[in-house]
């Protein structure tokens, strides 16, 4: 590639400034002393203190975390199974309908998914609460997991599984001993994606949650509708911080495993030479 032109440098700088400055402002103003969010009145961490004492927010955060944990875990199991069925099973009855149902929720407007699930829960007489939230979130999250896992399964050398079967493994053993370790990174990132999607969801949760199961996004949305508030700024900063830390840890881990793999390969090369 040729050198970056001035135009490239300017568009990259402006582009990344556009992506990051709004969040940076949010973080800075969460440490603002003043109740007026747009006027800087000195450094203070008092909004974090107020947040820690706000029982409603803490309750909502606990509901959200539990829902995200259960739905992303079930979604990972179901999504991995779905991906395996789509990529490995070849043709089977209802395959087109199946793959359609995997991809459709990804492009479905959330208002429609939320409305349809709510009408289902009412039709079968299921009271809205944590359970309905988990069912709803599992359904759209499993589709994302299945897309992530199937992209890994496509590039996976199937002869490894066949070799395990030839050496006497049952189908379940070859999956557990050969396939799973290889697709594990994709399964983990699928789980993480499902977890963040569930944490983040406002629209589907608004339709499917009951009065006793208000989630954090619902709480944030109803208070944000009235305008900008320093408490929400503090809460946003905590959430942005968690994501940033998570991403840094993940990138360090991939870097280390890359380094280890490179070292292993170098050692294998040396072993072959001698």
């Amino acid at each position: 590639m040729r050198r970056l032109s001035a135009f490239n440098v300017v568009s990259l700088t402006l582009g990344f400034a556009f992506l990051y400055v709004p969040m940076l402002i949010l973080v800075i103003y969460s440490f603002n002393e003043s109740k007026l969010v747009t006027v800087w009145a000195g450094f203070s961490t008092k909004w974090y203190g107020e947040l820690a004492g706000n029982q409603q927010f803490l309750d909502a955060a606990w509901v959200t975390l539990r829902v995200a944990f259960f739905s992303s875990t079930i979604a990972t199991v179901l999504g991995t199974m779905a991906a395996y069925a789509l990529i490995r099973s070849g043709r089977f009855w209802g395959r087109t309908a199946f793959s359609g149902m995997i991809y459709a929720p990804l492009v479905m407007p959330e208002v429609i998914t939320g409305l349809s699930l709510l009408l289902l829960f009412i039709a079968i007489g299921l009271d809205r609460g944590i359970l309905t939230l988990v069912l709803a979130h599992t359904t759209f999250c499993m589709c994302y997991v299945s897309v992530v896992v199937s992209s890994r399964l496509i590039t996976f050398d199937q002869s490894l599984e066949e070799a395990a079967r030839d050496l006497g493994c049952t189908a379940a053993e070859s999956f557990r001993l050969v396939t799973l370790p290889i697709i594990a990174p994709a399964v983990v990132s699928g789980w993480l994606l499902a977890f963040t999607l569930s944490l983040d969801d406002l629209v589907i949760a608004s339709f499917t949650s009951g009065p006793s199961s208000t989630t954090l996004p619902i709480k944030i949305f109803s208070s944000v509708r009235l305008g900008v508030s320093p408490e929400i700024n503090a809460l946003s900063t905590i959430m942005i911080g968690i994501v940033a830390i998570g991403v840094i840890i993940a990138s360090l881990m991939t870097k280390r495993s890359m380094a280890r793999r490179l070292a292993d390969e170098a050692a294998a090369d040396r072993a072959e030479l001698t």
Binding site: I25, L26, V37, P217, F221, G227, S236, V243, V247
Partner: peptide, 17 residues
């Protein structure tokens, strides 16, 4: 990275701006 941060918060950030 922004994709991993809450959609709601990213929209909210613009209300103050």
């Amino acid at each position: 990275l922004p994709f991993w941060t809450s959609f709601l918060i990213r929209v909210y950030a613009w209300m103050g701006i």
